[in-house]
């Protein structure tokens, strides 16, 4: 797409696509951090020649959907030329420092910068998980997993009543 390796997203944003539209920012998200195409916060921001900022995924979609013609920017109808598009790492840094509430709020009261959200969700007690036992498809919050594994799971291993082996 551009002269830089645009496809590479920072590790903190690579998994945010799933929660992109449910992110809750502490301060109202400034207009220019909102992607004109998907209306979520821009992930892996790329700037066009007309000075608008899109997710990499969205600008790539625009360029691929009209391979024969030059796509127009939805905001100002300016032509989006792929050689003018660049990875806006300044915008990326600004966004990574925006404060968000945990996506499991109000259950979880944590707030952190956007680049720390993934790390938090890996440990958040209120994050939904599927039981790790083979055959069990039950989904619960992380804080309830231990008890489920120990007591409630129909697929848990139990010591055999006869030989005491699991």
């Amino acid at each position: 797409l551009s002269r830089q390796n645009s496809g590479v997203a920072g590790p903190w944003e690579s998994d945010l696509t799933a929660v992109q539209h449910s992110l809750k920012f502490v301060k109202k998200l400034e207009e220019h951090y909102v992607c004109p195409t998907c209306k979520g916060v821009v992930l892996n921001p790329h700037q066009t020649g007309c000075g608008h900022i899109f997710c990499y995924r969205c600008i790539q979609g625009l360029l691929e959907n009209s391979p024969a013609t030059t796509p127009a920017c939805p905001l100002d109808r300016g032509l989006i030329k792929s050689d003018e598009v660049f990875q806006d790492n300044c915008c990326k840094r600004e966004i990574s420092n925006l404060e968000v509430y945990c996506t499991n709020s109000p259950n979880c009261s944590h707030r952190m910068t956007l680049c720390r959200l993934q790390e938090h969700l890996q440990a958040c007690p209120f994050e939904s998980l599927q039981c790790s036992n083979a055959g069990c498809s039950e989904v619960m919050q992380r804080k309830d997993l231990q008890e489920h594994l120990r007591i409630n799971c129909s697929y848990r291993m139990e010591p055999c009543h006869y030989c005491k082996h699991p």
């Binding site: 002269r3 220019h32 000075g51 003018e84 660049f86 915008c91």
Partner: peptide
């Protein structure tokens, strides 16, 4: 040649 015109910042 790696400098990109930042037309967003310019407009702001």
């Amino acid at each position: 040649d790696q400098l990109f015109p930042d037309n967003f910042a310019k407009r702001e």
